[in-house]
Amino acid sequence: MAKVRGAIVVDTERCKGCELCVGACPTDVIGMEEEVNSKGYHYAYMKNPEACTGCVNCAIICPDGVISVYRVKTS
């Protein structure tokens, strides 16, 4: 069966830790890293990467435009 897999790449230095992407993800992929970036913000990361479908919800809600999304169809 064809399955869609996605992945996100966060520009961690520019992430402001607002967490809007966390709530926008329908499959609970995103968590906030305990580490902080040079500005002192906890940044977003994929805590549950297998669940990402590449739906881009997180990227379009991110006010700082720091998320890039990749998507493939697997069989």
Binding site: G6, A59, V66, S68, V69, Y70, R71, V72
Partner: peptide, 8 residues
């Protein structure tokens, strides 16, 4: 080739 979204 799999990129579907990035900042304009």
């Amino acid at each position: 080739e799999n990129l579907v979204y990035t900042k304009s």
